[in-house]
Design a protein around this nucleic acid. Sequence first.
DNA 1: ACAATATTTCAAGAGTTCTTGTAGTATTGA
DNA 2: TCAATACTACAAGAACTCTTGAAATATTGT
Lengths: 122, 122
Amino acid sequence: MDQTTAIGMFESLSSPVRLDVYRLLVRRGPEGMVAGDISAALDLPPTNLSFHLKTLTRVGLLSVTQEGRYQRYRANIPLMAELIAYLTEECCAGHPELCVDVSALSGCVDADSDLPATRREP
Amino acid sequence: MDQTTAIGMFESLSSPVRLDVYRLLVRRGPEGMVAGDISAALDLPPTNLSFHLKTLTRVGLLSVTQEGRYQRYRANIPLMAELIAYLTEECCAGHPELCVDVSALSGCVDADSDLPATRREP
DNA sequence: ACAATATTTCAAGAGTTCTTGTAGTATTGA
DNA sequence: TCAATACTACAAGAACTCTTGAAATATTGT
């Protein structure tokens, strides 16, 4: 994790809309959500949501895959784990026994998700 | 952790100067640093540093105590742990076994720091 | 081919943040 | 008390972000 990446992630997460979107997708896990469903779930104009999804995707917090005319977005959990590690790096240097342990962080994404890719009703 | 607090923290951390300051103080642990030493360590004009320290303190990421004419700043590690928990809350709902475990997070601050409070040479 | 659906791009105004110098307040030491 | 030191408050311009509607692109189903 370099500083530029970390800054980009924090900037992304410092909008209420984007934080809501990101947390929603973290809860969803590997299944993710298509843009229209996010728009409906958070009651946002599609235009505005698109702007924020692009911002989150640009910095890597979300990944996006095309499914026909839908765009499915997923949270990039391992990147979040890297950010946390960056933030807590060398915490309390000289007294490591007092510090946050984030070494055990792993990602939802380990689990290649062979869940059925649910779409919404037509 | 409520959304407003989380947003404030992310906004604070999304400036290169503030992120550097915060990470420096995380590394320092309970000892913290006085403003002038931070200014020297990061080669920042005191005016500008003051602006950023105030921003970090306002949102709770730093705490500050007066020591004579010095202001000693410390990172608030437990709050960081709360933020991480907020971000990873209900990760992968329905498949918790795949998710980030942050429940073990604790703070540097558990250790009431009876280290000698080192000042710099007069 | 056509209409409907899903999503993105563009432009523009309102609001916010960052940096810097100058000036101010508070504490220390002689 | 006086000068030096440590730090903060203020002001103003430059730069950036957010929101919105209208228009564009791409995909699907008939």
